[in-house]
């Protein structure tokens, strides 16, 4: 669940072990977040995947 127009949070990922990526991000407000992951495969193909993190508690 998300409100249009709210500030997005950006983060780049690091490959911690081959094939496994990690990103740290500071979610700026409580609630349900939608995470969009933009991927570029070795052959240059670009993909986008989406998943949700629900119920982020207030800081």
């Amino acid at each position: 669940m998300s409100h249009a127009g709210m500030s997005p949070v950006f983060a780049d990922t690091l490959e911690v072990v081959p094939g496994e990526y990690r990103a740290d991000m500071e979610l700026s407000m409580a609630g349900d977040w939608t995470i969009l992951v933009h991927l570029t495969l070795p052959d240059g193909v670009k993909l986008e995947r989406q998943f949700e993190i629900k119920g982020v508690a207030p800081a």
Partner: peptide, 13 residues
């Protein structure tokens, strides 16, 4: 008050 339930995150990799 802090806002809640109204946000989106964007990431790349």
């Amino acid at each position: 008050q802090p806002m809640e339930m109204r946000a989106i995150a964007l990431g790349s990799g």
